[in-house]
Amino acid sequence: MFSQKPTYRRWVWISGGLAIVFHGLWVSQHMLLGNGQDLSIINVAVLLCLLLSLSVTMGCSHFQMWIMLPVVYIASVITLLLSAFISNPYILHLGIYPQVMVHIGFALVAFTVMMIAALFALQLGYLDHMLKSHRPHAINVAMPPLIKIENQLIGLIKIGMVLLTISLATGFIFLNHIFDNGQVHKAILAVIAWFVYLFLLTGHYRWGWRGRTVGMLTLLGAVLLILSYFGSRLFSSSY
């Protein structure tokens, strides 16, 4: 996968592309039902892994994201395997509530962008650790330089912030039950994550934060977003 040879890269593209096609077919068959859309927690996890796999596969060559492919592919395999053993349907009728579909759409895309940013943060941390451990030989030549990864990370967070802001705004406007007992912690965690990312960008541009600080705050924001959705769904029966 990390080889510079075009033949190996071509096989990665072919195998990854086929896997994504079948992954997409699974999502269409198990989420888009005749009586509505099944947005159970495991189905949404599978969908998010599909979005991550598709995004990273499409960008791996241009942005040198090859090291991220095993992570997103393994996550996809795990969620698909779990879906075979976990069945807890949660049927919605999004066609009746298009405004909710808008909110969910922005939320999914924002989550995907911020998870890719988290992968960049992990890659940044790995390279930084290798360099500080005086083991530059452990860094594959296919991996981009630190400054390029950091610039891409900041760019992703800025895009993610716009999407996350729209997601939160549409949630407050369109979801009347957002502060219900089963939803309030979801909203609070998402808002805290938004402030963490804002704090990160402010620190980067105003105080020159770089490297480990940027990476740790990126991962903290990602964890908060994961807890915001999946944590709430574990203890709540409603979206």
Rank of each mutant, 00 (worst) to 15 (best):
L224C: 05
L198N: 08
F111I: 05
M115I: 15
F22N: 09
S15N: 10
V214Q: 00
L217R: 01
I42V: 07
Q183D: 11
S83Y: 01
Y205A: 05
L201R: 02
M68F: 03
I157T: 05
W207V: 01
R10F: 14
M31L: 02
I173C: 12
G125E: 11
A117V: 11
M1Q: 09
V56Q: 01
Q99N: 13
L201G: 05
S232K: 06
R135N: 11
T170R: 02
H185I: 12
D38G: 04
L146V: 11
M1C: 15
C60Q: 11
T57V: 13
M58E: 09
M1I: 14
C60T: 06
G95S: 09
L48C: 10
N43C: 00
L227A: 04
L217C: 04
S3V: 03
I96K: 13
Q37P: 07
Q183F: 14
W11R: 05
Y73C: 08
I139R: 03
V71N: 01
G231E: 06
N43W: 00
L48H: 11
I178E: 03
S76W: 02
F85W: 13
R10Y: 15
L227I: 02
T170D: 02
F106M: 10
L48G: 08
N181I: 13
L94H: 12
W209E: 04
L119N: 07
I159P: 11
I173L: 14
R212G: 04
L201V: 04
L80Y: 04
M130F: 04
G221I: 02
S76G: 12
L220H: 03
I78R: 07
S87M: 13
V27W: 03
L52N: 13
Y73L: 11
L32T: 01
H134T: 14
H93E: 09
I42L: 01
I14D: 03
G34T: 07
L92R: 03
V102I: 15
I78H: 02
G231T: 05
P70L: 08
H204L: 00
H23D: 06
F230D: 11
A222Y: 00
L51R: 02
F230M: 11
V113N: 06
R206E: 05
R233T: 11
Q123M: 06
I159E: 13
S83E: 00
F2S: 08
Q152K: 10
A19G: 08
V100S: 10
G231S: 07
T57W: 07
G211D: 00
K132W: 10
L164Y: 10
L94C: 13
L168E: 05
L122S: 09
I149Q: 06
S3A: 08
G95F: 08
W11N: 06
V214C: 01
A222I: 04
